[in-house]
Simulated scan of single mutants.
Amino acid sequence: MLVLLGFILVFHVATAALLFIATIDNAWWKTEAASTDIWQTCYFNKSDCDDIHVESYGDCIKAIQATMCLSVIFCCISFIAFVIQLFQLQKGQRFFIAGTLQLLSSLSVMIAASIYTSQEANFHSTMVPGNYGYSYILAWIAFAFTLISGVMYMVLRKRK
């Protein structure tokens, strides 16, 4: 049982790290001249970065920023809830609070990545063609990981 709990803790920390990287790092969209994330655009030939202009992206970028931040918050609170429930729950009970928060984190990151995918043509219409960056891919991987860990928490019972 301790090995399983250790695996779950490591899996949860790895998922939180993926969410932090996907939210903060500047690699949602890559071209030969620049890389863009949900916060700013950095040009390779300059040392500075330009903030995203909300007016040109519309409310979609605000929704993406908000839901990615929510996913990180839900994931961190879920980890704290899991640790608290680990010591407070009676034998045989399930980790419903931690699982629910992790599923909310999964839903939030899925919404953010889905909005970004559907609005990608509008976001990058003024840039030369490019490809999705690794932060975008990490966001989708984090979605899968948070979904899996949320289901694991729902199924997991506290045993001796």
Rank of each mutant, 00 (worst) to 15 (best):
A63P: 09
S135K: 01
F11I: 09
A113N: 07
C75E: 08
C75L: 15
F96I: 09
S118R: 14
S106G: 12
W140V: 11
R94N: 08
C75S: 15
I21C: 04
V13N: 04
C75A: 13
S114A: 08
M154N: 06
Q90L: 15
N45C: 13
D48I: 13
L86S: 09
H53P: 07
A112Y: 00
N131V: 13
M154R: 04
A113L: 13
F79W: 12
S135H: 07
F79C: 01
G58Y: 00
A144W: 02
K160D: 08
A113S: 15
M152R: 09
I148Y: 10
G150V: 07
V128C: 09
S149W: 00
Y43S: 07
Q88V: 13
L70C: 05
L9T: 14
L4V: 02
D48T: 15
T67D: 07
Y136P: 03
I38G: 00
V10H: 02
H12Y: 08
E120V: 11
I52Q: 03
L18I: 04
L19V: 06
S71Q: 02
Y57P: 02
A22Q: 02
V155T: 03
L101H: 03
S78D: 01
Q102R: 14
L70N: 05
E120N: 12
F74T: 05
S135F: 03
D37P: 03
T36Y: 15
W39K: 11
A16E: 11
S71K: 01
T67K: 04
Q65D: 10
S108E: 08
I61L: 03
V13E: 06
M68E: 10
H53G: 06
G99M: 02
I24A: 13
G99F: 00
V109F: 11
L4R: 05
Y132A: 11
T117K: 08
I111T: 13
I8Y: 08
L103M: 10
Q102C: 15
D51S: 12
S35V: 08
M110Q: 06
I97H: 00
L86C: 06
F87T: 10
I111F: 08
K30Y: 13
Y153D: 02
W28F: 06
L2H: 12
G133T: 10
N45E: 12
M127E: 09
L2D: 10
Y136W: 11
Q40M: 09
A34M: 04
I111G: 02
L89H: 04
S106T: 06
P129Y: 14
G6V: 14
K160R: 13
T23K: 03
V151A: 07
I97Q: 01
F145L: 12
L147C: 05
A98S: 06
G150P: 01
I64Y: 04
I80S: 01
L2Q: 11
N131W: 10
V13I: 09
I84P: 03
T15C: 07
F96A: 14
V155F: 04
I24D: 12
A121S: 11
F96M: 06
K62S: 09
T126C: 10
T126F: 13
A63W: 08
V13Q: 08
H53W: 15
I141A: 04
Y136K: 03
R157I: 05
M127K: 03
N45Q: 15
A34V: 07
D37S: 14
I61Q: 05
T23C: 06
F96P: 11
L18A: 11
I80Q: 08
Q65G: 02
I73G: 13
A112K: 01
S125G: 07
I61D: 00
